Simulated assay, not measured.
Amino acid sequence: MKVLFIGGTGLISEAVSKLAVAQGIELYLFNRGERDEFVPEGAQVIRGDIRDAAGAAEALKGLEFDAVVNWIAFTPEHVQNDIQLFSGKTKQYIFISSASAYQKPQRSYLITEETPLNNPYWEYSRNKIACEELLLEKHRSGSFPVTIVRPSHTYGITAIPAALTSGKHPWSLVERIRKGQPIVIHGDGTSLWTMTHNTDFAKGFTGLLGNPEAIGEAVHITSDESLNWNQIYAAIGGAAGREPKVVHISTDFIAAHTPAGTADGLIGDQAVSSVFDNSKIKRLVPEFSATVPFAEGIKQSVDWFEAHPERCSVDGEWSKMLDTLISRHGVDAKLLSYYV
């Protein structure tokens, strides 16, 4: 099977690329070469930028694939370009959507693929929904063979996954925990959440490649393990070797006292309990099973960072923001207790 990944070296996709090659898939990666250390041996790399439509068409000229996966499509314009580029040149186009597109807050804590798509809180999610609608419309017209995959909070060895954290410097959270500095958990920390290791995601995903039963379908791929946020941060502390010093702060307060956009993903996704029914992916890919518990996965991440000290950078601005947030929350709590 001949497959093209647009991207293929990111947080989620690098694990899928590695497994695809191991399974004997003839894998091509089309990207700009910014994370070449995660290109698996055996994959063929085509240099280019998918945002340059003309350049991408030239770089991929004459090539056809059994499946094309775009790991970095985020807007309807992105997928419209792909429709023009790959129509008639692939038997399957897989769009990477997001489980954050599901209704927020949903009517039931248990999410299935039948859960409505509606997220008024996060533009990222609304754009993913618009992409899905465009692609399914093309599929229904008979002109484009699409499969939609919705990851939830997926991580790997290069990530320290959490809610209110530094995206560019994930080690910052471990650094604060080890120094005994307080960290913030939204709400009371008892809402449920699902963390999925990228190697588990990969096992479900590769089973969809070239799978005729997956054409025209949308499916999420997540772990079956559900933890509350207190348990998640306790596991991070366990991997870091120190119990976290925790301050619980309401999501609304966090949003009101952090820079614009900081809490968008929190409000639009992580603040709502999310537990997934994985019956559909298990039906489409019977061999799929998520086997990496979060306590084990986060330990692998901490070990990886410690083996790569150059990646243990600390985000001073983020840490300062957290200190300011905690300070303001403390002042407000004192005032409230005074007036009560």
Rank of each mutant, 00 (worst) to 15 (best):
I157H: 06
I160V: 10
P161S: 09
A162P: 02
A163F: 01
A163E: 03
A163C: 04
A163W: 01
A163M: 02
L164C: 14
L164Q: 08
T165N: 08
T165C: 07
T165P: 01
S166Q: 10
S166W: 09
S166C: 13
S166K: 14
G167H: 13
K168H: 00
K168L: 06
K168V: 04
H169K: 10
H169F: 04
P170G: 07
P170L: 04
W171Y: 13
S172Y: 00
S172V: 03
S172K: 00
L173N: 03
L173A: 03
E175C: 12
R176F: 07
R176P: 04
R176G: 11
I177K: 05
I177D: 05
I177R: 09
R178C: 01
R178W: 02
K179R: 15
K179L: 12
G180K: 03
G180F: 03
G180C: 05
G180S: 05
Q181Y: 08
P182L: 06
P182S: 09
P182A: 08
I183W: 06
V184A: 04
H186G: 09
H186I: 05
H186S: 13
H186Y: 08
H186C: 05
G187I: 08
G187E: 15
G187T: 14
G187Q: 15
D188H: 13
G189C: 09
G189M: 11
G189R: 11
G189P: 14
G189D: 15
T190S: 15
S191H: 04
S191Y: 01
S191G: 07
L192C: 04
W193Y: 09
M195R: 15
T196K: 01
T196W: 02
H197R: 13
H197C: 10
N198Y: 00
N198V: 05
N198I: 00
D200Y: 01
D200R: 09
F201G: 13
F201E: 15
A202G: 15
A202S: 15
A202Y: 10
A202M: 09
K203L: 12
K203V: 12
G204H: 15
G204D: 15
G207S: 10
G207V: 11
G207F: 02
L208Q: 10
G210M: 06
N211H: 06
N211G: 00
N211C: 10
E213F: 10
E213Q: 14
E213A: 12
I215A: 00
I215G: 00
I215K: 00
G216N: 14
G216K: 11
G216F: 14
A218Y: 12
A218L: 14
V219I: 12
V219M: 03
H220K: 11
H220I: 09
H220S: 06
H220T: 05
H220Y: 12
I221T: 12
T222P: 08
S223Y: 02
S223G: 02
S223W: 01
D224R: 03
E225L: 07
E225M: 02
L227Q: 02
L227P: 03
L227Y: 08
N228M: 12
W229Q: 11
N230I: 09
N230R: 11
I232M: 14
Y233F: 06
Y233M: 11
Y233E: 05
A235Y: 02
A235C: 01
I236D: 00
I236P: 00
